[in-house]
Design a protein around this nucleic acid. Structure first.
Length: 260
DNA sequence: ATGGTCGCGTAGCGA
């Protein structure tokens, strides 16, 4: 069972690229972020044609998350618990019927948080607090669960081409990295670190400044696995060639292989 | 120090 996460940076602008990648990589489950459309504008038919069931938590212009699954989708919960007044569509949790039983999956688009001296950074940290509270409740279910998405956190110095240049950025600030570590310390496993952990393997390269050509990237797209999912984790792949496709997203897919 | 790129939506913001 292959489960991928991909910040697509607009499903509308990216659809041909996405369809090409889906046919090639053939993931069973895909968590998407930044679809940037409302639910009824999501290209459901094109994706169903490739054999996917679809769950969408959309938003116009900004944000928006979705889950594609070749397995039936049994339960759909849009929105991160903990603040009913939060209008931003950044969290979608589903349960899919995988080959050997149910698998809980969340598509996560964590706030960017820049600039750090603004309320955006406070929102990021508060959102992280809400995520941890919900993640703790999910752990107590003792089910295979994967929280997959764009966390907008660079965990280590080895996950960025130039740590000094990023030291003041919300993605690399100590508070953001500590929040990510605190999530893992609850009992979640970073799939990449569990099976690879090589340095300077990136998932995002900015469109600006020739970042891709110079390999000035960062690793910010992660799969957090519950113990029951981590037990079944067999491999991880960062789909770096996707950044060189025609009309690429600035993120590439990250895919875990599970015996599930 | 500046400017560089996308996407949305058609100006300027977000990333």
């Amino acid at each position: 069972m292959k489960l991928a996460t991909w910040n697509v940076n607009s499903i509308k602008a990216r659809l041909p690229t996405i369809l090409t990648w889906l046919k090639d990589a053939a993931p069973d489950v895909v968590c998407m972020q930044e679809i940037k459309c409302e639910d009824d504008a999501f290209p459901q038919l094109e994706l169903e044609d490739l054999g996917y069931n679809v769950a969408v938590h959309g938003q116009k212009t900004y944000n928006g998350v979705a889950v594609l699954s070749k397995f039936p989708i049994e339960d759909v919960r849009p929105g991160l618990p903990g603040d009913d007044t939060d209008p931003q569509a950044r969290f979608l949790e589903v349960v899919v019927s995988a080959a050997h039983g149910p698998l809980r999956v969340a598509s996560i688009y964590l706030p960017n948080g820049n600039p750090v001296d603004s309320e955006k950074f406070a929102y990021k940290l508060k959102w992280f607090d809400r995520l941890r509270a919900h993640a703790q409740a999910l752990l107590e279910l003792e089910e295979p669960t994967v929280l997959a998405g764009d966390y907008n956190v660079i965990p280590r110095e080895d996950d960025v081409h130039d740590p000094k240049a990023w030291s003041g950025d919300a993605l690399f600030r100590p508070e953001s990295r500590a929040a990510w570590r605190a999530l893992l310390n609850q009992g979640w496993t970073d799939a990449y670190m569990a099976v690879d952990g090589r340095i300077h393997q990136y998932t995002f390269w900015d469109y600006q400044r020739g970042s891709w050509q110079k390999d000035h990237g960062i690793r910010i797209d992660h799969l957090a696995c519950s113990p029951q999912a981590a037990d079944r984790l067999k491999g991880i792949a960062i789909h770096r060639p996707a950044r060189a496709m025609e009309k690429p997203s600035d993120h590439v897919p990250v895919a875990g292989e599970f015996d599930l």
